[in-house]
């Protein structure tokens, strides 16, 4: 008896694609490539005398079960779960970034504060007013230290950081790959110390040279305190990175030599 609905290969391939599409281990490009593979495989099998439907069934069987395929692809598209370690890691990373941004704003504020007194007053003008809204009126690092920990800043930065990661990677799943950059926590930690301890203080140190009062001294003292606190933050971040990301960042080396880490 004739089959009333003829087999539609393209629709069958699409259905197969959809059946695995909900896994975070596959990117759209991977799904398209697997579909293209399936199509080529069906053509080859048809040439051996199988019907299109039989060829399709044989081709999907050759690709195999969803789970092993998912595990292999998860090695190159790391799957992130928002577990406690990951959230803690990002929170500390965000606090650190908040710290750096805040220090930079302070530092520039001090520079402009000192410039306003001198010949370069005009340069400090508009930008100085804008920045002074964010900086304390008392130009002392020590007095404003507790403000670095303002919780609302942390929340804002966590959100901004996640959104930036989303934009940078193009997908929520891609944030996993983004986290993958923290694969070497020690190297990352050292880079962050440099970033957090040197960069924000350049304008402030310049201020030290420009001012002729005790401000430079107070800034130098503030720098030491900040560098020490920075160190504690970075070390905790490194430890968290090691603890939390050990099982989800892509390991080095080619994927076929890596151990399975994804369970489905």
């Amino acid at each position: 008896m004739e089959n009333p609905t003829p087999f539609d290969l393209n629709a069958a391939i699409r259905r197969w694609q959809q059946s695995i599409a909900n896994s975070p281990a596959f990117k759209p490009d991977n799904l398209e490539e697997l579909a293209s593979h399936l199509w080529a495989s069906v053509q080859r099998l048809k040439a051996t005398g199988l019907s299109e439907e039989e060829a399709f069934l044989a081709a999907t069987q050759r690709i195999g079960e969803r789970c092993p395929l998912e595990q292999e692809f998860a090695k190159i598209n790391p799957v992130v779960t928002w577990s406690l370690p990951v959230v803690s890691f990002w929170t500390v990373a965000c606090i650190y970034l908040l710290w750096v941004v805040w220090l930079l704003v302070h530092s520039i504020g001090y520079l402009l504060y000192s410039l306003e007194r001198g010949a370069l007053r005009a340069l400090g003008g508009v930008a100085g007013h804008a920045l002074r809204l964010l900086t304390p009126s008392n130009p002392s690092f020590l007095d404003s230290l507790p403000r670095y920990w303002d919780i609302e800043w942390s929340v804002v930065l966590v959100v901004v950081f996640i959104l930036v990661a989303r934009l940078a990677t193009g997908s929520w799943k891609g944030i996993g790959a983004f986290i993958g950059h923290f694969e070497h926590p020690i190297r990352t930690g050292l880079r962050l110390v440099l970033f957090g301890c040197v960069l924000p203080f350049l304008p402030a140190l310049l201020t030290g040279f420009l001012t002729r009062n005790g401000l430079g001294q107070s800034i130098a003292f503030g720098c030491i305190i900040t560098a020490a606190a920075n160190f504690v933050l970075v070390v905790s971040m490194v430890l968290l990175a090691r603890w939390g990301l050990r099982n989800m960042s892509p390991a080095g080396g080619p994927p076929h030599k890596r151990a399975m880490r994804y369970s489905c």
Binding site: S36, H37, R44, I63, E72, F73, P254
Partner: peptide, 29 residues
């Protein structure tokens, strides 16, 4: 991808078998 699997299969007379799940992640890496 598909042709790579066929080619290696043909050259090795079936001795070297690559699965799709293994090959594509390697290519992307």
């Amino acid at each position: 991808g598909y042709a790579l699997i066929q080619r290696v299969n043909e050259l090795s007379a079936g001795q070297v078998h690559w699965s799709e799940g293994m090959l594509y992640p390697v290519l992307h890496w």
